[in-house]
Design a protein around this nucleic acid. Structure first.
Lengths: 198, 198
DNA sequence: TAATAGTATTAACAATGTTAATAATATGAA
DNA sequence: TTCATATTATTAACATTGTTAATACTATTA
């Protein structure tokens, strides 16, 4: 990486960090390019020397946040654990993490950031998809005899959709249920779905 | 209703209709108070004589759209039909309707319109909640012997969350699957969940 | 030291929602 | 009908948004 590129990357990170701070404090809607410039200690227009537009900056923020998210979600993996129990923990953790990071949810599922720049697309693509991890764990449940092999796909689809639906309600509809209650529901649902049919 | 009130209501409907047109053509994000004024044949500022702000106007639009939506969803009810089949149709219809009316989804689940004005809250509250209707049908499935009584709640929660999750993917993440495929998945999932456990 | 390339800043633009000031119109009384 | 008043619509204005063009500044290199 050239000298120039190192410096440019550093500048980019200044703006990205500033943006992330504002995002956490005030949310996506209240972020503005002026605020980011202020917080980073530069004029607002300087941003446009390093990012195509605000959406590109936000895409970099998203990539950063996904990094953390995946790290957090990965370390729930405990080999010793029963796959069914593992799946429950995974579902809980997934829900909880997004519930506590509404901005991530917004950027990832709600906001339209336009085309993802290649540099970031690579970064995001390499990360193991959430769906895959879920399917894998459900697959283990099948091997452990909890469910049938041919149920894996339906269950994976059902579970991912359900968790995201609950997130939508929790974060967007000032939903009736507090977080802990929803977590309980998720636990119950997975418990219901993954069990030996007698 | 006084004369003045009739006229005011008529004026309101001009703006509401104009807004709905624009919403359907261009979506929530591209709607502006200026465009609404133009389309309705008035100056933009006139709107503020009849609505507190743009959010209030949008809330009225939403109420209007919900009217149509409920009408559409209600007439799937066929008494002769098996409750399981009824539930499948209902789920399909629900998904399809929102998939075809992304603006409704946005206004109802995504956008924050602030406090709902009383006049509209009444209107929206009277309408039978979607969740209720679903629970009722699932209850019928229990009575018909498909599932157990104590499964009704979990299944209702699971199904609503799942369908909304799928809508989120379809409408917000330029989702991989076309509408018909998702409808197929929904059918399969309901079929999987509602069946006599042997 | 002077010329040039690279980078940051200010100024400016068009579009947004909203409010205050003004114009037009309808209403009611004489 | 005509004038005074209340109602309603419009234009002007403001602050804020993202973005771009013009300008100032700061390194680098000859």
């Amino acid at each position: 990486m050239s000298n120039k590129e190192i410096q440019a990357q550093r500048m980019r990170s200044f703006f990205i960090d500033a943006a992330k701070e504002i995002l956490e404090e005030e949310g996506v809607k209240k972020l503005s390019v002026r605020k980011v410039g202020d917080r980073a200690g530069y004029s607002y227009a300087t941003i446009y020397n390093y990012f195509k537009d605000l959406n590109e900056l936000l895409t970099y923020c998203l990539a950063d946040m996904l990094d953390d998210a995946y790290r957090m979600l990965m370390d729930v993996k405990e080999e010793s654990l029963d796959p069914r129990e593992q799946l429950i923990r995974y579902g809980e953790r997934y829900y909880t993490y997004f519930a506590q990071n509404p901005v991530l949810f917004d950027l990832l599922f709600i906001e339209d950031l336009g085309a993802t720049p290649e540099a970031v697309a690579d970064k995001m693509g390499e990360l193991p998809s959430v769906g895959q991890l879920l399917i894998a764990t459900i697959g283990e449940c099948a091997q452990a005899g909890y469910i049938l092999e041919d149920e894996v796909e339906v269950l994976a689809d059902l579970l991912t959709a359900s968790i995201h639906g609950k997130l939508l309600f929790s974060l967007k509809r000032r939903s009736l249920d507090p977080m802990e209650v929803v977590v309980g529901t998720i636990r119950r649902e997975i418990g219901y779905l993954i069990r030996r049919k007698k």
